[in-house]
Design a protein around this nucleic acid. Sequence first.
DNA 1: CGAACGATTAGCT
DNA 2: GCTAATCGTTCGA
Length: 189
Amino acid sequence: MKPRRLKPADFLRPAPEMAHALIGCVLLVDGVGGRIVETEAYDMADPASHSFTGPTTRNQVMFGPPGRAYVYRSYGIHWCLNFVCDEEGHGAGVLIRALEPLQGMAVMCERRGLHAPRLLCSGPGRLGQALAIEHDLNGLRLDHKPFEVLAAERPHEVVVGPRIGISKAADVPWRFGLAGSPHLSRPFR
DNA sequence: CGAACGATTAGCT
DNA sequence: GCTAATCGTTCGA
C-alpha cells in the first residue's frame, strides 16, 4: 500500500519535535529524492536561526503558514531546503540535511557529477544540488507539485546531537539522525 | 554605500 | 585538519 502524503496540518508542531518526526519520511522533488535521514531544528528563540532577528525579505517564508518550503543560499554557493513548521508567525523550521537516495538515482548522479550513492545527498548543499533545489521553490507548499513528502512506513531509531556549522547555541541538541545510516553528512557520537 | 559574515563543500596537507 | 570559493543578506556609517 502507498504511504500517506503529509499535509499542512502535519507540520503544526514545534521544530525539535517536527525534526524528530521527519526522520524516515520520504522527500521527492519532481519524483526525485529519498528517505530523510538527517534534520536540524530552528526556531525564533534560537540565536542560530535565520528567524531570530524577526521577519526580513529573506526569511519571511519562515513566518508564513507551516508545511511550505523555505529555501536560502548558503555561503553564496549552495541552496538549502527547510520545512516551515509550528504555528504561522512562529518562525520555526526544519533544515533537511541528508537523504538516503531512493528514486531518480541517474538524475541525481548527473546533477552531482558523481556515481557514489554515499555522496549524493549527504549534506544540505549536496541534497540541494541533487534535487535541483533553487530559489524558485521558496515558499511553495510541500503537499503540491513539485514536492512530495510521504509519512514513514514504520518507526525508526533516531539519534540526537548538537547541530553542525553554526557558532551560536552550538550546544543545543537539535540535530536528529537515522541511527546507523551510512548517508549522514557526519556521524553522531 | 561599504564591509563582514555565513544552517557548506571540495580539495589539499 | 585547514582553507579557498563565492555572493546574498544584514548592519553600520
